[in-house]
Amino acid sequence: MSPIIQSLLLVTAQVIVLLTVSPFLVGLIRKVKARFQCRQGASVFQPYADLAKLFRKQPVISTTTSWIFTATPYILFASTLSAGLLVPTFTTQTPLNFAGNIIALVYLLALGTFFLILAGLDAGSAFGGMGSSREAIIASLTEPAMILSIFAIALTAGSTNLSTIVHKTALLEGIATDPSPHLMALAALFIVALAETGRVPVDNPATHLELTMIHEAMVLEYSGRYLALIEWAAGLKLAVFLSLIANVFAPWGIATTLAPTTMGIGLVVYVVKIAGLAVLIGVIECMFAKLRLFRVTDLLGVAFILALLGLLFFYILRS
């Protein structure tokens, strides 16, 4: 098989895996929360039906909006999906391996966030503006924490390419095996993941009617297929973060070769791992209350310091 066809197949496979798995993760978290609250809850496949319904609905667009409003869902979806192609999922070979590393990943996600913030302001509603301003605060605080934690991991593996990092960790070759930097980076990245995907200690994804909402406030004006794209992109972002955490810190079981059997095992292990993480997020959402907006900086400060400590430990413990 020629390398071009091979990488095209990989891209297609990863796109399909990410797109199918992301609504499932959202549904799974909702199901876990429902069971914890002694409710039956909707089926875990409900988000697929929601997306299908939204795609069929006619979108309504405010007459005061500009092109940014209609372009944002596509930009957000495309940038999140391309970020997803930089993260190893079921195999260590990432499809866009040649095109970018973890720094590209961080800023592809930031691009989507940036346009979403603009779109929130675009419609001119008070809620949208409030949501955008809060999202900007959180995004500016998570970015340094995320970059530093990723640097801590990159230093231990000696590369900023995610594919190389995961491959080396999975085979335990050429890695400084000291666990402390990894532990700190994991804790930091987990907090960042909760903040970036709008999960409970920072934002409440289950509400449309609260003064404290962030993500929902920005997308309040959207409807129809635009809303579907944004919701799907939010699910994708969750899947990207969970894959990142699962595969960088626990890459066991991932396919390190392109043989069909190892890829099959890798796919099953991957789905189990991220489903496990999604359940964990659901449990956290049930156990903790949402933080007050001005206390979010404390939490993200902790994430930043943890990431910084991860970096420091790499140097302290190297001797």
């Binding site: 000291d178 666990p179 402390s180 532990l183 700190m184 804790a187 902790v302 310091i305 943890l306 400590l309 430990f313 413990l317």
Partner: peptide, 12 residues
């Protein structure tokens, strides 16, 4: 090292 790192973590 790991145990002492956890000690430092609780400090924070």
């Amino acid at each position: 090292d790991l145990c002492s790192a956890l000690l430092l973590l609780t400090c924070f």
